Amino acid sequence: MTRGPTLPAHRLPCLPRPLDAFNAAAGDEARALLLTCMRSRRWARRMADHRPYPDLDALLAAADEAAYDLPPADLSEALAGESFPELPYGTYFAAHTALSAAHAAYEARFGHAFVIYLGDVHPDEAIDRILEGIRSRLANDPEEERVTAADELRRLAKGRLTAFLSGARPPKPAASPRGAAGRDAPVRRA
């Protein structure tokens, strides 16, 4: 018995990869996404202007380089756009109180929010890591802490970029600077 003609194979639509979509996005759209990763307009503009990136590694290398080159005013802008890391759901009130007090002491000493990358930390260990980080970094002199905070900002930005461009949900926006209208959502784990 002979068979009739076969139907062509069903093909799923080819969806753009997140990096391809980022590379093809309009400049304003790319900068807006980048500002959710690090709240520095200079950094976002530089990253958007140097597109296209051939792969995630190239993008992350460029993110590092652009962040290392931030002048003090732009680093201050980025730090002002951050807020205290969000605590895991179910955190005890006593932990909130202890962390709030430690963060207030940190902010009084250094003039900006405490930033820390928690992407490689199990959620159950986040509170301990944050408290340990604040306590140890309170001993830093202001310049040493500025270098440490800048390094943590770079790690946060890379973690947020990686999460988004690996197909995860869009990064949570960094908080807007104090007093400014707009998003004031707490920073989430990258």
Rank of each mutant, 00 (worst) to 15 (best):
F164Q: 05
I116L: 14
R169V: 07
E144R: 12
A126F: 01
A149M: 06
I130C: 09
P170Y: 06
P173L: 05
E132Y: 12
P123I: 00
R146L: 14
S176L: 07
A149F: 06
R154V: 13
D128Y: 06
A126E: 12
F164W: 13
D141Y: 03
A157R: 02
R137I: 13
N140H: 15
D141C: 03
Y117W: 12
K158C: 14
D128C: 03
P173A: 09
R135C: 08
S136Q: 11
R178I: 02
I116N: 01
E144W: 03
S136H: 13
E145A: 11
G159Y: 04
D124W: 02
T148W: 01
E144I: 11
I130N: 10
L153D: 01
A163I: 04
P123V: 10
P170E: 00
A157W: 04
S166E: 13
L118P: 04
P171V: 03
G167I: 07
V115Q: 07
G133S: 07
A175G: 12
E143S: 11
E125A: 14
P123A: 05
A168Q: 07
R178D: 12
R178L: 14
I134S: 02
G167P: 10
L161Y: 06
V121F: 05
V121L: 11
A113Y: 07
R129S: 10
A168W: 00
P142V: 11
A163C: 06
A168N: 09
I134L: 15
L156Q: 00
V147T: 13
L153F: 02
A175P: 05
N140R: 01
A157V: 09
V121H: 07
P171I: 03
P170M: 02
K172G: 15
K158L: 04
L165Q: 01
A168M: 03
P142A: 08
A126V: 14
K172R: 08
G119R: 03
E125W: 09
T162A: 10
K172W: 00
R146Q: 14
R169D: 13
T162H: 10
L161H: 11
P142C: 03
R155M: 14
E145Q: 15
D141V: 03
R137L: 07
R135T: 15
E132N: 10
K172H: 09
V115P: 10
L131I: 04
H122E: 02
P173R: 11
T148I: 08
L161G: 12
E144V: 13
L156K: 00
N140V: 09
A150E: 10
L138I: 02
